[in-house]
Design a protein around this nucleic acid. Structure first.
Lengths: 159, 159
DNA sequence: TAAAATAACTTTGAAATTCAAACTATTTGA
DNA sequence: TCAAATAGTTTGAATTTCAAAGTTATTTTA
């Protein structure tokens, strides 16, 4: 016997594919802007005179193993030229070091100065706090399945 | 008795709070930049001469009920002044309309012209495709609990 | 090994994006 | 009515971005 499609959907599944899609869409796109805004406000409150963009450059440097201009720009998804201007001002403001690689003198290796490390610590602490408060509100840490799925989602975008 | 490490991982492995935090952090921050880049590339491929930013302005307009400068800028999280310049170029390029509200002549009401609707349709279709391909890869649509959790996560950031 | 190609980066020129603060026009409230 | 509040625009300045051209160093190839 054939069961009407609506039945199956109604009884067996609360969320349909379209709803799920909307939620993920929203999460991935709209929410992010809010986080950026909150982070920016946090920097201001702490008296840090850097844009979120500049903080992300510092973050990218800290997460990159071989810290050449190419590698960092690749991680950020911007051209090397764009990164050059960014590094110019960060160097000027005393956040990063910058020197030629002695092995391959075409390369420029950037590094984080103490001032930058301090900013990144602030930034990390803020992120941890934010996510912890999400956990608390949602009791997420009990939710094995969610974490597992998020990990899959995360790895999907890495490829 | 000591249990081999693999066993524990295989049978008992739980995500701890720190791991979960890292994954969510990554998802919310690093992944988003990749999506933006993919979307931008898609626009280019389709021959659409707009920046992702401009597309987001159009999107914000379409999602706003009373389409005044204030309301749209609030949704975007930028100042009205910033929106003014954005609307200037979009108006110039023929994507949006712009007229004073007759009821309250301080207000400016913006609207989407056919050219903008076409771009948004492209953009929506692309998003749906992207998320559908995530679903397929992950068999996410079977995962009721995930969707529920994501919804909670989403609503957390709305407040 | 000398010339050509490639790689890594900077510079230049131009356009977007953003904000704060000053300014204009309109409406509201006392 | 007139001061205050609201809604936008303009201005001036800084950031951010890219493409394309230029520089220097290294590698490949003929």
């Amino acid at each position: 016997m054939q069961v009407p499609e609506q039945w199956e959907l109604g009884i067996l599944r609360k969320y349909n594919r379209e709803q799920a899609r909307d939620i993920i869409n929203e999460l991935l796109v709209e929410i992010f802007n809010k986080i950026l805004a909150i982070e920016g406000q946090n920097l201001k409150d702490k008296g840090i005179k850097l844009s979120m963009n500049e903080v992300h450059v510092l973050e990218a440097i800290s997460l990159t193993d071989e810290r050449t201009m190419s590698n960092v720009s690749k991680r950020l998804g911007i051209t090397i030229g764009s990164l050059t201007t960014s590094i110019n001002t960060l160097y000027q403001k005393g956040y990063v070091s910058r020197e030629r690689d002695l092995e391959d003198r075409r390369k420029v290796v950037v590094g984080l100065l103490p001032k930058a490390e301090a900013v990144l610590e602030e930034h990390d602490a803020f992120h941890e706090e934010m996510i912890d408060s999400i956990f608390e509100e949602m009791e997420l840490d009990k939710d094995e399945l969610l974490i597992e799925s998020l990990e899959k989602l995360s790895s999907y975008f890495k490829k």
